[in-house]
Design a protein around this nucleic acid. Structure first.
Lengths: 240, 240
DNA sequence: CAGTGGTCTAGACCACCAT
DNA sequence: TGGTGGTCTAGACCACTGA
């Protein structure tokens, strides 16, 4: 077995067993180098695997932060924004802002969104139309502490472009969950669905900055026959 | 801009523009090192990004093979096998083999599966039960050139375990597509669906070995309310 | 300022592939 | 055998963090 794989597994099991707790930092690369009697590059290879598999987030000048594990986690990756989805359907698409207001997170919303209770957030609801049909309903919750300003002009465009170009927000990773839900009345009101539809695809995600602070929760609801998720998957990131 | 990012983009655009054609090899790491006047590690960093993003497959002793691009490709990753899914639901699950036979790929199947016309393949159909309810229908097409032997005993267990432990098959990557389809009569016959269901989740994938040969096509059909896809996603693999 | 991670180098040896 | 990628080393310098 390769050195960096051994070290990867040692640290992984340390995280799983709670030796390294979520929210704390791993020993520094230098410490680990001494512990395992290997070069720094070998340590870095092990850590980059842990990063790729969602165990840690490295923060320059600070260390390797152990991430909270939400349930069991498949070793997968990929962000999908509306602007990316757009390309699947060409450019005959548009965005409508349904509502934009500030809200305060209560217990229930805290569980759903992952934000702390009594955080102040923007709540943004938009519909996305493809070929003049509204087929996607986007509900965004944005932490005002990180995104202080928001208006319908920005919301009509890509909020991600605003984050990255204007706010210099460094978006690092996201957790995403895809499920098939029953249609709600809100879905029926805001979208142009097919008569016979009874289901909708729900893509829920939590998005984090490079210093591992969550700033966004999104639920994106897609008409079932307009939904398509494409995935390129590697089995052993270790043997790249 | 960092050196390896510059090189990554140079090679990426070379692939996109067809300077490096799919099926051909990139210049060796040594050549690239000379071309860009950097160390081999810097080249390797750029290549590992190209690998992570699905552009190339490195093959030891041969080189970096440029992969065919199927449509646009999100920068995503992750394999999900039934055995992994199982963990979401605990271990009260079982597999039934519906049929297993050899088939020859015709034009239509070639388009669907990605295999060449007149390849000889195993066609394996199985149902997966959770809590005594059959909720997943798996249809596998396996290239006999790579998987010469298959029987219902193996198929009842994990075929992946057989691939990796018995055949020493090195599974490297997969392309996967998730869509929501209308129920077919076959779905109704073989699965224990809810009365009111009209949709089913279809996960289609093509699976490749580490020398970039496709050996499997799978369609996995999941009852909508039993389907859940969890994803951990990084925005900039470059800035790990 | 000291400590952390991020980038880059030059060189070594190994495993694998083709000839 | 020579060329390829895979692993590992020791050291350098930079960018960022926090006291």
């Amino acid at each position: 077995m390769k050195n960096y794989e051994v070290i990867y597994q040692a640290i992984e099991s340390g995280i799983l067993k709670g030796v390294y707790e979520a929210g704390a930092y791993l020993p520094s690369e230098n410490k680990l180098r001494q512990t395992y009697h290997v070069s720094r590059d070998t340590i870095r290879k092990a850590l980059s695997l842990l990063t790729a598999n969602g165990y840690i987030q490295k923060i320059q000048g600070k260390g390797s932060l152990v991430l909270k594990r939400e349930q069991l986690r498949f070793p997968v990756s990929g962000l999908t924004s509306y602007k990316e989805l757009q390309n699947s359907y060409g450019y005959d698409s548009s965005t409508d802002v349904v509502s934009l207001k500030k809200i305060i997170i209560d217990k229930k919303m805290a569980d759903v969104t992952g934000f702390e209770i009594s955080s102040v957030c923007w709540e943004l609801i938009r519909t996305r139309a493809i070929d003049q049909k509204k087929v996607i309903l986007d509900k965004d919750i944005l932490l005002t502490a990180i995104v202080p300003e928001m208006d319908t002009e920005i919301a009509k465009d890509s909020i991600y472009r605003y984050f990255e170009n204007q706010l210099n927000l460094n978006i690092a990773f996201a957790e995403k969950e895809i499920t098939i839900d029953a249609l709600t009345n809100e879905d029926r009101d805001l979208l142009d669905l097919n008569q016979h539809d009874i289901n909708i695809v729900s893509v829920k995600s939590r998005v984090f900055t490079s210093d591992a602070r969550q700033f966004q929760y999104t639920e994106s609801r897609h008409q079932v026959d307009k939904f398509r998720f494409f995935d390129f998957a590697r089995r052993h990131p270790s043997t790249m």
